[in-house]
Computed example of a mutant assay.
Amino acid sequence: MSNAVKGAARQAPPLPTPGPQRPVRVLSFSQRLSKWDVKVSPYLYVSPFFIVFAVVGAFPLVYTAVISFMDWDQIRQSGEFIGFDQYAWILTQPAFWVALRNTFSIFLLSSVPQLILALFLAAVLDRNLRAKTFWRMGVLLPYVVAPVAVGLIFNALFADNSGQVNAWLGMIGIGPIPWHVEPFWSHVAIATMVNYRWIGYNALILLAAMQAIPRDYYEAATVDGAGAVRQFWSITLPSLKPTFIFVIITSTIGGLQIFEEPRMFDQFGQGGSANQWLTITLYLYNLGWGDWNFGRAAAMAWLLFLIILVIGLVNLFVTQSLVGDDGGKGPKLSRAQKRQLKRDAAARRARRKELYR
């Protein structure tokens, strides 16, 4: 062996001696159960909603879809497949088009004033009022009243001859209005019932969105000399656009499904002697439980579903285009800009404190 090889052998470090091997860790049953709990428990927490939806939501949709293509016998729970004959029959009925016209008329007469008044009421409740909780609970009381009770009360108020509304109108020289005869006036009366019930509910939703707007914006606008009206149009209304989209869509869905108010507008519940206030849902009810034809009623339900879907999508696209790409939230600020905004607001508060000392 050469001297170089011997020197390298002497300089090489000794090989490490193998130590005792680490024992393999065996998970106990409780540890496995805890691991499964972390993975499975989130799905268990949300499963009740999907189970209830499958029973009361998805199953009726599929069930009515099948029945709508059949000449269904509810007593025997069987039927004969007839394709789109039920849909064709409904579309050829004049009562369907009258009900569609009445539904859209009542929807427009109720939803547009409802949203405007709800926005105004939310702006009033957002001010520094005394007994805020009392007023906020008060506007919600009509919503918790039973629709049947509201229908009975308003049916008496809008009576053609002895109604209190006609008595009030007579004091200012307006003759008695035939609320139960003329289609337009019956729609106005029913829309009044709808607005009475839902204005407070929508106002509280908009109020919650107003409460989430940073108050620094209003303080800066006040220092800059902007009044209450200017602040509402420049700060409040743009910040409410995402919530306003939600309120518009839900109001659209509820307005097209109106049933209790026209049902209780007279003692017969058939939509008037000449279908003056017959709505789609009331027509559906008459087909199913009046004519005992559940195939046509199921087809009517799916037509209503398609109408609501189309109107809802149109509403969504229109409102999103009005809001813009930023979702109505305004331009995004960097962290430095946000910190500077907070420092400016703190400096304004400090200056106000100095002025009031």
Rank of each mutant, 00 (worst) to 15 (best):
F244C: 09
M193D: 07
G328W: 08
P176I: 02
L157M: 15
T250E: 09
Q114E: 09
K241C: 07
L309A: 11
L287K: 10
Y43R: 08
F158H: 03
A336W: 07
S162W: 06
M1Y: 07
L140N: 04
N3W: 14
R357D: 10
E219A: 08
V144D: 11
L240E: 05
L119G: 11
F84N: 11
L91R: 03
K132I: 03
W292E: 06
G295N: 04
L129S: 04
L100G: 03
P48C: 04
W185T: 13
G151E: 07
A118Q: 05
Y217N: 01
F134P: 03
N286W: 04
Y143L: 09
I177N: 01
I248G: 03
F184A: 01
P176R: 14
G327W: 04
K6H: 08
S28W: 00
M171I: 13
A274V: 10
P176V: 02
L108F: 13
G151L: 06
P14W: 02
Y356I: 13
S186R: 02
L306S: 08
G173Y: 05
L119W: 10
V26H: 14
V5Q: 14
G269K: 04
I249Q: 11
I172N: 08
V112E: 04
A350M: 13
R10C: 01
F104Q: 00
A9F: 14
T17D: 02
N293I: 09
Q231M: 12
G83M: 12
V165L: 10
W36P: 00
W233K: 09
I253Y: 05
K132G: 01
W72G: 06
A167V: 12
